Simulated assay, not measured.
Amino acid sequence: MNSADWFLLGAPWDCSGSGRGEQAAPAALRAAGLSGLVHTDLGDAACAIDSHERDARTGVLALPETVRAAHALADELEGALRNQAGRRPLVVGGDCSLLLGIVPALRRSHGPMGLWFLDGHPDYSDGPGSETGETADMELAVLTGDGADPLVALAGAVPMIPADAVVLLGHRSSGLDAAARRELERVPAAMHRCDAAAVAADPAAAGRRAAALPAEPGLRMWLHLDVDVLDGEVLPAVSYAQPGGLDWDQLAAVMAPLARSERLLGASVADFRPDLDPTGAHAARLLELLERVLP
Rank of each mutant, 00 (worst) to 15 (best):
S173Q: 09
S173V: 11
S174E: 15
S174C: 12
L176E: 03
L176V: 09
A179G: 12
A179L: 10
A179D: 10
A179E: 13
L184C: 07
L184K: 00
E185M: 07
P188C: 06
P188N: 03
P188K: 01
A190T: 12
A190H: 01
M191G: 06
H192Y: 11
C194T: 12
D195Y: 12
D195M: 10
A197S: 14
A198P: 15
A198H: 11
A200Y: 02
A200F: 02
D202Y: 04
P203Q: 05
A204E: 13
A205D: 10
A205P: 12
G207F: 14
R208V: 15
R208E: 15
R209E: 15
R209L: 14
A210K: 02
A210H: 05
A212T: 12
A212V: 08
A212I: 10
L213F: 05
L213W: 07
A215W: 09
E216I: 12
E216T: 15
P217V: 03
G218A: 03
R220I: 08
M221I: 11
W222D: 06
W222T: 07
L223V: 13
D226A: 01
V227A: 00
V227S: 00
D228L: 00
V229F: 03
D231A: 02
E233F: 12
V234T: 12
V234M: 01
L235Q: 01
A237E: 00
A237H: 00
S239W: 03
S239N: 09
Q242A: 13
Q242E: 15
Q242F: 11
P243D: 14
G244L: 05
G245E: 04
L246R: 01
L246Y: 04
L246C: 08
D247G: 10
W248E: 05
Q250F: 06
L251E: 02
A252Q: 04
A253I: 11
V254H: 03
P257W: 05
P257N: 05
P257Y: 07
P257I: 09
S261C: 12
S261L: 08
